[in-house]
Simulated scan of single mutants.
Amino acid sequence: MEHSAVDPWPEPEERAAEAALRPSTLEEFEGQPRVSDQLGLVLSAAKHRGTTPDHVLLSGPPGLGKTTLAMIIASEMGVPLHITSGPAIQHPGDLAAILSGLVEGEVLFLDEIHRMSRPAEEMLYLAMEDFRVDVVVGKGPGATAIPIEIPAFTLVGATTRVGLLPSPLRDRFGFTGNLDFYEVDDLQSIVTRSSAMLGVGLDEASAHEIASRSRGTPRIANRLLRRVRDYAQVNNQGRVDLALTRAALELYEVDPLGLDRLDRAVLEAICTKFGGGPVGLSTLAISVAEEAETVQEVAEPFLVRLGFLMRTPRGRVATEAGWRHLGLTPPSSGDNPDLFT
């Protein structure tokens, strides 16, 4: 089944559109002032010393700007950027090939770093500290480790699940930035900036409407903006107003709180098929015809953040607020003792 218009893992053509809207400097990077200020200090100090910046670990949900910050770090330091991901590095040789090909001062962006294999991870420890990798030649008692010096580089690791990183790896990062969900005002500024770059005549009320339905995530805000633009173009409209924006978002099944088709399907399944819960993740995923990982990573965190769903030791439970958002009457606690506890 296809993901909805607010799926946080975009298709390649969506990535290209998003890349054009990315801020290119820390001054343009809105919504994360604490991380921006701290990272700016790290980069300025490195420039002053004439050295490569400390390794940087960025954590937070998808779509908040981890990749953008990696690009900004390389741009601010005036060095190349090499992008790869944890799932692509399953053997130490994969990592050794990447590291040996870096140039002096280059930024290596390692997305989903928590999904890197353990043998490659252990090789990364030495590379981060001593800028050296040991390549093992041969097998068994006759195996020989050949040390290979690599240029000084800055590793920028990104993860959505920082708890899965082992302590030895986390401790080797000189700076850790935790990205939080954005406030509506910050998202409104991002939407306004993006609309100007896309040539969309967007008024303030429409920008606020898009921002308020974007789940605190710039990637989703920019995607909804592009869908509103498409709707306006197809309907031969000029300037985008609030009525048109709401009509477009309704067409794409994004409700006033930002819930999309998958969110509502999950919530409705818990309430109508399972009496409010508790229900296990795999059963819930089957009931909405989605992968369990998609339900857990895409829909569940947002529903929990809104207070519409709870995780309990026995499974997922819809809250009273979740029932009422769907226009349903919640059962009393006597009908289901697992509810509203």
Results as ranks from 00 to 15, higher is better:
L58W: 08
I72F: 04
F175H: 14
V279G: 07
L326T: 04
V162T: 08
V42Q: 03
A20G: 11
F109I: 00
H208N: 06
D37F: 09
P218H: 02
L26F: 03
E28D: 12
G322E: 01
G60V: 05
F181W: 12
G275F: 09
L126R: 13
A269M: 02
P141K: 12
I190M: 12
S59G: 11
H91R: 14
M310K: 14
G86W: 01
S44T: 14
V184M: 06
V317T: 06
M197H: 10
A221E: 06
L284I: 14
I270F: 04
H208C: 06
M1Y: 12
L251H: 13
G60D: 04
T25L: 01
A17W: 10
G157W: 08
V107R: 05
P331M: 10
G78L: 00
T329V: 13
N336I: 06
D203F: 10
V234W: 11
L165T: 09
L64M: 05
Y125F: 14
R115C: 01
M77Q: 08
V254S: 10
H208E: 13
R34V: 15
G50N: 04
F302Q: 06
V79K: 06
R170P: 04
G327I: 00
V234T: 12
I89Y: 01
T68R: 00
T68I: 04
G157D: 09
I89N: 06
R229V: 00
Y231C: 03
S206V: 01
V137R: 01
L164M: 15
A127T: 11
R223S: 09
I190D: 08
L165D: 10
G40L: 04
R305K: 14
L225P: 05
T159N: 06
G216R: 03
G65K: 08
D7M: 14
S167H: 12
V136I: 13
L69S: 07
V103E: 15
T67I: 02
L187W: 02
G199W: 02
S24D: 00
E268L: 15
V107M: 08
L306R: 12
S195Q: 10
I150H: 05
S36L: 02
N236M: 10
L164Y: 15
T245R: 07
T52D: 06
G50E: 05
